[in-house]
Simulated scan of single mutants.
Amino acid sequence: MRVLIVITREPREFVQISLNTHGTRVVQKLIETLKTRQQVKLVISGIEPGFLSLIKDLNGNHVIQRCLQCLSNEDNKFIFEAAAKFCVEIATHQHGCCVLQRCINHSTGVYREKIVSEISKNGIFLAQDAFGNYAVQYILELQIPSAVSKLTTQFKGNYVHLATQKFSSHVVEKCLAVLDGQIRSTIIRELISATHFEQLIQDPHANYVVQTALRVSEGPLHNSLVNVIEAHKSISRNSPYSKRIFSHKLLRR
Rank of each mutant, 00 (worst) to 15 (best):
Q65G: 00
N61D: 08
L58D: 06
G46T: 00
K41M: 11
L30P: 05
T36P: 05
E32M: 08
H62I: 07
L34C: 03
K56L: 05
G46V: 01
S45K: 14
R25F: 07
T36C: 09
L30H: 06
G60T: 01
R25L: 04
V26D: 12
L42K: 12
Q65L: 03
I55Q: 02
T24R: 10
L42F: 08
L30E: 06
S53T: 06
Q39W: 10
I31K: 06
K41A: 15
E48Q: 13
T33S: 13
E32A: 13
F51C: 04
L34A: 05
I47G: 00
S53L: 12
L30Q: 07
R25M: 11
G50D: 01
T24F: 12
K29I: 07
L34Q: 14
E32H: 10
H22V: 10
K35H: 08
L34Y: 13
Q39Y: 11
V26L: 15
S45T: 06
H62M: 03
I47W: 05
S45M: 09
N59G: 02
L30F: 08
L58K: 14
P49N: 04
Q28P: 12
V40Y: 11
L54F: 01
R37A: 11
K29M: 09
G46P: 04
I55F: 01
I55A: 07
V63N: 07
I47V: 15
T33L: 13
S45N: 13
G46M: 10
G23D: 02
T36N: 04
L54M: 00
L58T: 14
F51D: 00
T24A: 02
V26E: 12
N59I: 01
H62A: 03
I47D: 05
C67N: 14
L42T: 13
Q65A: 03
G50H: 03
I64T: 04
E48L: 14
Q39M: 12
I47H: 06
L58Y: 09
E32G: 07
K29D: 12
V27G: 05
E32N: 08
G23A: 03
Q28F: 04
L34G: 13
V43P: 07
I55C: 02
F51S: 02
F51H: 01
Q38A: 14
H22K: 09
K41I: 09
S45L: 10
H22P: 04
F51I: 00
G60H: 02
Q38W: 05
K35N: 11
N59S: 14
K29L: 12
T33N: 13
Q38M: 09
R37V: 09
R66N: 12
R37Q: 14
C67F: 08
I31E: 09
I64C: 02
T24K: 13
C67Q: 03
Q65T: 04
T24S: 11
K35V: 09
Q65P: 01
F51Q: 00
S53V: 08
E48C: 08
L30N: 06
V63M: 04
Q28D: 09
I47A: 08
L68R: 02
T24C: 15
I64R: 12
D57S: 00
Q65E: 04
Q28G: 11
L54C: 02
K56E: 01
V40K: 15
Q38I: 14
G50Q: 02
L42H: 13
S45D: 15
P49Q: 04
H62L: 06
R37F: 10
R66T: 15
